[in-house]
Design a protein around this nucleic acid. Sequence first.
DNA 1: CGCCCAATTTGATTTCGATCAAGGTCAATC
DNA 2: GATTGACCTTGATCGAAATCAAATTGGGCG
Lengths: 248, 248
Amino acid sequence: MAVHEHSTAHMDCDNCPIRHRAVCARCESDELDALNAIKYYRTYDVGQTIIWSGDHMDFVASVVEGIATLSQTMEDGRTQMVGLLLPSDFVGRPGRDHAPYDVTATTQVTMCCFRKKAFEEMMLRTPHIGQRLLEMTLDELDAAREWMLLLGRKTAREKIASLLAIMARRDASLKPQGAAGQVVFDLPLTREAMADYLGLTLETVSRQISALRKSGVIQLEGKRHVVVPDIDRLLNETGDDADGGFFG
Amino acid sequence: MAVHEHSTAHMDCDNCPIRHRAVCARCESDELDALNAIKYYRTYDVGQTIIWSGDHMDFVASVVEGIATLSQTMEDGRTQMVGLLLPSDFVGRPGRDHAPYDVTATTQVTMCCFRKKAFEEMMLRTPHIGQRLLEMTLDELDAAREWMLLLGRKTAREKIASLLAIMARRDASLKPQGAAGQVVFDLPLTREAMADYLGLTLETVSRQISALRKSGVIQLEGKRHVVVPDIDRLLNETGDDADGGFFG
DNA sequence: CGCCCAATTTGATTTCGATCAAGGTCAATC
DNA sequence: GATTGACCTTGATCGAAATCAAATTGGGCG
């Protein structure tokens, strides 16, 4: 029975890293049952704010489907995106009860939520979960630092190319691509959201995308559908080390 | 005897968060002995590179004394600082064996190092350590995100004011200050290092510091010694929310 | 279908910070 | 006490991105 419950539970939350990777993977069904008992799902519409900065947060959550952003806004309205949440990413911090950032749904988003108190108790009993969370947090920190290099030192063109490369990489790992070196994907962000990601204005984003199109590095179909005929040409525009093994 | 050993060990590594906060605080001397058995100290001179990006790393470490920086450099030499390590900060990542960033000593630095393999085994046996590390990593992630807002959206003047406020805050928490609202400290960074922190050139850093001096927000004695006569005036220049409780 | 509105593109101009180029300061060393 | 060299300041100019201001596109809806 334990095995059967296990595989059922597996289906309904495929992307939840807490259960799926740290617990499920080891088939420890007691833990799984405990997690199932304290979790619930919520869905948010495009553009909906999931959490306001400063809000009391009594849950932690994991993105099951869709894309959400973390962002910070200054009094005068300047905003900077500081996190991009993709399926399997985790939000919320055990041991802190007010949200430090706005969390907004960029597409329709489904979250797998755990009541914070119960989750914290769970963590104490189950070292796997804490370890998995540490690993994920360290990955996020590495990503944040890469992002800092982009914000502080890259040109507008390099910023755009880097963002496109990130999107391309993500999608390339999901679906096998056609011709060698070709990658096709849809931008999940508006020009304004891209600007907030990159520390630019939306006009500059638009101009640089046009420039990359004109120089043949990318092709656009509509506003959001991107064809990258030769991924290496795009990578050459990012300013990053040429011989990265991302698409190798 | 256990008590005596405890307090001795306490003395020689006051700032090590792993032992001091996570283990020592609970007076669990078995754990303490185990940590003592796998640790060693190293000292680095001003300007010395502690770790090169890409190096094999067989240790993790904690800063005992001094200031070190994490930074990333692009092929053409553009450099962005991505971390500032102060006493009690941790470097290195369990489960990864190549360093992702350059680590450089900005002042003379003493590190308390633990052999990575032994440290990892220790973590498995001692949940406190992993929990403490998670907490520290989450704090670093928050700091990185604050820093992203600075890099992406603040003006040069706001960037300088923010950096000065960070330094002032750090020093104000160490020593009690004289007149109400007055803070005095020494800059531990060269103009170039400040520029790398802020995503500016050193000339812009110099000009903006001069501008803050001319407008009376700060006073300089020599190049590095800073007097902030009214901390609120400095905070008003940072662009951050006015009513932060840092110095309250 | 045609209207509407948000998203995007494009153009003209300005501005902030980068770049290039001298000087200045100060502590260490001969 | 002159010389050196690292660090810092200041000035002049340039240029990339911001800002201000219209168009244009295209999907959704009455």
